[in-house]
Nucleic acid binder design. Structure first.
Lengths: 202, 202
DNA sequence: CGACTACTTGGCAGTGACTGCCAAACTGCT
DNA sequence: AGCAGTTTGGCAGTCACTGCCAAGTAGTCG
């Protein structure tokens, strides 16, 4: 399992990489379909593997856990968010910088419908939500230095403020997306996010 | 498994209730001890059951899941928080009301040392944290009407603001308790909470 | 006191997610 | 073609958790 030397053309170089790519996509599509059709908890790994045409063992090699089958490549999301935040001008405030990052990630979704379906599953399935929150929290910790630098915190005494700001941003994103899902995907998620932040920050 | 008809004296009426109480406490103590000694993931249900002197089956009847073995009676925490918020004067703002609830819950811990140990396990164990966050999110939803009433939201169009406020409060509590743990339990948690909220709300 | 009921317990088998291990199949390079 | 490195599938095993059933124990009524 080496790095995939992605060429600039978008087509991976070797057959292996192409096969991996296809298998991965097939598994992801099958999983999302089954989750949507019969629910997350009611879908077993065995079933996904069978319908995707791979062994369970291979499925677990591609995706380390069942929850990773939803939400596609989350690492990419986090990467984009962190990069975007880092790329904001130095004189931009934390809130603006983070807002830009959130916007960049939301723009990453394939389609509005697919995004809605993902969020719906995420918010309605306890077991999924748990894992998702956990993963996100880990990312929040990773984001910490980036935000701390922007806030100019003293390195000596531990300062909770950066953590609080990051956590609040995600809290607002949660509130916004939950309301969005409850509302059947009507309106713009980013508007809801702004509304949440306004409610919090006065 | 009926309601325990707790008498005013604090001593449960029947032998059954007393036995249940003792078994429950024994399990909880054993679990916390083992978790602390060897870590959450490294401790199996079988081991806890063995050392607590009950069968696995019985253990699962008392506590539905492994994560419930930490944090004792969380339902009580939530109950206290909700009650306290509800008991705040009508003219108190949402933020003050929620702050009072948070303070009430934090005051519930047996000892500072035990609270620190619980938080430490919670923040350092991924699998635990996941379940905890999930449970909390469910509680947040339960708190929603209480907060909405206090904010005077219109019933018609779904409004994300109440959710955002609640989520932000917990986000700050998270940031505060994580920093508290990182700092070895020095200082007052409530002060850190206030600092977080100040950083967020300007 | 004895019987009858209600509740609790423990064991057992089973499910489902997930991991380590090993042999077989396959790709890429010479 | 032939070797080396990579991927795959199957198998057995671990662990959390559940349903089921038989046996034990507490409470109650005659």
């Amino acid at each position: 399992m080496k790095q995939a030397p992605e060429t600039a053309t978008g087509t991976p170089a070797t057959l292996w990489d192409r096969t991996r790519q296809m298998a991965s996509q097939e598994i992801l599509d099958t999983a999302l379909r089954l989750f949507t059709e019969q629910g997350y908890d009611e879908t077993t790994i065995a079933q996904i593997a069978r319908e995707a045409g791979v062994s369970q063992r291979t499925l677990f090699r591609y995706f380390g856990a069942k929850e990773d089958l939803l939400g596609g490549d989350q690492d990419r999301f986090w990467q984009v968010l962190a990069d975007t935040v880092g790329a904001q001008p130095a004189d931009a405030g934390v809130w603006e910088a983070l807002r830009a990052g959130v916007a960049a990630v939301l723009a990453l979704h394939d389609s509005r419908a697919q995004a809605l379906e993902r969020f719906r599953l995420l918010h309605n399935t306890a077991s999924l939500r748990a894992g998702w929150l956990e993963k996100r929290l880990r990312f929040q910790e990773g984001l910490l230095p980036l935000v701390e630098a922007r806030m100019g915190v003293a390195a000596g005494r531990p300062d909770p403020r950066a953590r609080a700001v990051i956590a609040t941003v995600f809290a607002c994103l949660d509130a916004a997306s939950m309301t969005w899902v409850d509302n059947g995907g009507k309106g713009d998620l980013m508007d809801l996010y702004d509304e949440c932040l306004a409610a919090v920050r006065g």
